[in-house]
Amino acid sequence: MSSYSIKMTVNGKEVTGEVEGRTLLVQFLREHLGLTGTHVGCDTTQCGACAVHVDGRAMKSCTLLAAHVDGSDVLTIEGLADGDTLHPMQEAFREHHALQCGFCTPGMVMSAIGLVNDNPNMSEKEVRHGLEGNFCRCTGYHNIVEAILAAQETMRG
């Protein structure tokens, strides 16, 4: 089978790589670029641990081909902070202790930013509904929801 040269912007930097047709975006991020903040949880499009943004929209990188997003702008958890200054969503997760084991956290944060970008005035119910594609196996949803509600206030300024 063939290999494919791809080029995309990841966290503001242009990157290139050689991938197989079947190489997933999450594999490209983790194994080719060493960006291991994006996690593989279920690998079946259900748990959301692999959430990244592609051209500004939150998506599950375990269910995208790397070749699929050739030419796109990709944002991962590593691209959120500005130096030592955390993104407001990261800061809210820290402040509200919105993580226990931390495995789902990168996906939760990326998904949550997508939700706030779409609607910065979510009710608690809308936040909970919006997280239906992200699983926390520690079941720490309460503080995750609190963090997102707090972060949306900061994000809308």
Binding site: T45, M59, K60, S111, G114, L115, G130, E132
Partner: peptide, 9 residues
């Protein structure tokens, strides 16, 4: 359908 991230794609 699915969840917000699935609906984005």
């Amino acid at each position: 359908i699915g969840d917000p991230m699935v609906r984005n794609r």
